[in-house]
Design a binder for these strands. Structure first.
Length: 358
DNA sequence: AAATCGGGGAT
DNA sequence: ATCCCAGATTT
């Protein structure tokens, strides 16, 4: 067997120190009340790239709406998207439903217990597989997220770029040696909790760290220069013209986005990207527009890899003149809340309400 | 290996 | 402004 962790590392003492601290200091989080595979699964999907405080209310509502795998498996897509509205990375909830259906229909309702099998499920990658297996099933499997890489890069003084995929594997190999054999779930959560509460990115609280004596970075005073992470390039700007188009009854035209790609399947005010002649673009798509005007409405919305700079235009469209497409719908203002809108669109709609246009 | 996929909070 | 967050999937 190849050893990844240095011989003089006091593994058992480290496990004890971490677990004692975790048991005393762990936060009282809703998904820790019931650690069934389904509860852990839902929480871990929501927590991907998303902060604990953001997730809590979504998690509680989601478990009320879909209390078990059968409920989620047979829920309508509109219902699961609505429950995810505002949380971001919407493919997560679609993948979750696909995977839950597979468990219900192919695995007899039992979440698979092996890394190999569970990893075939949509949306379950290396981290989530390890989290479910260790927390719900008590298996000695690593769960390497951003917290764990930061904590371990400091404790073990690992300087590999954590943005590279190979680096995550290196941490997993270390963890197969380090992980506590008696309580792997608490050990993994302890590492993450330590990263969230003590071993924070810019100003770690090393003075009160329960594993300070094990930390090689602290020993030489370089904890704040770890982990090493190459920075990524800035998002690209995209000019957007959004249209608030109402018919003679005051119904609003909304559009369903394609089922692939950015914000897939969510609803929005009709929009065009980088049009030189906005009114012409609007008329070409939807037919003759009355009282078309640019409003003072403007929304800047930042995604991970691009920035939408949205100008809001408004006008009236007669139902009989409108070029209607399958993806579009005129809806009464009171019905808007039934649809799932991304945050950028919620900002636009809020503005329209404030102006008294809706 | 690099790009895509949301949104919010801390610094 | 920049980084980070209990990452996974697609290209």
């Amino acid at each position: 067997m190849v050893t990844k962790v240095e011989k003089n590392f006091k593994t058992v003492q480290f496990q004890t120190d971490l677990l004692n601290w975790y048991r005393e200091n762990k936060r009282d989080l809703p998904w820790r009340k019931q650690a069934t595979p389904y509860h852990v699964w839902v929480s871990e999907i929501m927590l991907q790239q998303t902060r604990v405080d953001t997730v809590i209310p979504y998690y509680e509502q989601f478990m009320r709406l879909f209390p078990n795998m059968e409920h989620l498996a047979y829920a309508k897509e509109e219902a699961i998207l609505k429950a995810w509205e505002g949380l971001g990375y919407y493919s997560r909830v679609r993948n979750l439903q696909v995977a839950v259906r597979e468990v219900v229909e192919q695995y007899g309702g039992v979440v698979p217990r092996t890394r190999k099998e569970i990893s075939t499920l949509k949306g379950i990658g290396p981290y989530t597989a390890g989290a479910i297996l260790s927390i719900a099933y008590g298996q000695r499997e690593p769960a390497v997220d951003g917290n764990v890489m930061r904590v371990l890069s400091r404790i073990l003084h690992i300087s590999d770029d954590i943005r590279k995929a190979a680096t995550r594997k290196k941490f997993e190999e270390c963890l197969y040696e380090l992980i506590d054999p008696d309580d792997p779930g608490s050990f993994n959560q302890g590492l993450m909790e330590l990263g969230a509460l003590i071993c924070t990115p810019t100003s770690p609280s090393c003075g009160v760290c329960p594993v300070q004596s094990h930390c090689q970075a602290f020993a030489v005073g370089i904890q704040t220069s770890l982990p090493v992470k190459t920075k990524k390039k800035k998002p690209k700007k995209v000019a957007i013209a959004s249209f608030l188009l109402q018919d003679e009854d005051g119904h609003v035209l909304i559009e369903k986005r394609p089922d692939q790609g950015l914000l897939a399947g969510l609803w929005q005010l009709p929009l065009v990207e980088s049009a030189s002649d906005v009114k012409a673009a609007c008329v070409e798509r939807y037919g003759e527009v009355i009282a078309f005007e640019k409003t003072a409405g403007y929304v800047k919305h930042v995604f991970t890899h691009l920035v939408w700079e949205i100008d809001l235009y408004k006008g009236m469209l007669r139902k009989q003149d409108a070029h209607m497409q399958e993806s579009h719908r005129f809806v009464p203002v009171a019905d808007l809340e039934q649809y799932t809108f991304p945050v950028s669109q919620q900002k636009l709609l809020s503005y329209a309400f404030e102006e008294g246009w809706l």
